[in-house]
Design a protein around this nucleic acid. Structure first.
Length: 158
DNA sequence: CGAGCATCCTCAG
DNA sequence: CTGAGGATGCTCG
């Protein structure tokens, strides 16, 4: 899946490993890893990586949403708009695809598509967007996801 | 332009 | 309850 991507660091969360990819000091990708964990590990001495790891620690240990470190997002103008809107959803609350669509004057499917291409998990909380009837999809899969359920539960949502 | 989406709503059984 | 089907806006080839 990420055969050609070399991450600058990894983070071991309670639900799986996250890969951290930088460009300069900006975070450009934070995504769930499958099985193989890059050899650099969590002990990177890169200060920018350490900063991101600290933010993730805050999210997973203190159960609040951390200040988002500098990111550089590659995407269309529409995707940037959706990703910015996602960052305004507070810890512990959810919105449906339809609600976000109404706010941004677009369609629910377009919201889902933009969520799917979000390059930065957790810090840009695409998991707080749920379907009108159920939990909705995650990481490109329309089926209910264990990770998404865990994250929502972590934020006190049943 | 056409197809594919992490959706939503309605309607028929 | 279930499933089919149309509406929807955006992206990619």
């Amino acid at each position: 899946m990420y055969d050609t991507i070399v991450f600058d660091g990894v983070y071991k969360s309670p639900v799986g490993w996250l890969g951290i990819k930088l460009q300069g000091n900006d975070l450009i990708k934070l995504d769930w890893l499958e099985k193989n964990t890059p050899s650099k590990g969590v002990l990177s001495r890169n200060p920018a990586v350490k900063k991101i790891i600290a933010s993730l620690d805050i999210y997973f240990n203190k159960a609040t949403h951390p200040v988002i470190p500098p990111v550089s997002l590659a995407g269309t103008r529409f995707q940037q708009r959706v990703w910015r809107a996602l960052q305004n959803i507070p810890f512990g609350t959810v919105k449906t695809y339809g609600e976000l669509a109404a706010e941004l004057k677009t369609s629910s499917r377009a919201i889902g598509q933009a969520c799917r291409t979000n390059p930065i998990s957790i810090l840009i909380p695409c998991h707080r967007v749920v379907a009108a009837n159920g939990i909705g999809g995650y990481v490109g899969d329309a089926r209910p996801s264990q990770i998404k359920q865990w994250l929502l539960h972590h934020e006190g949502i049943h």
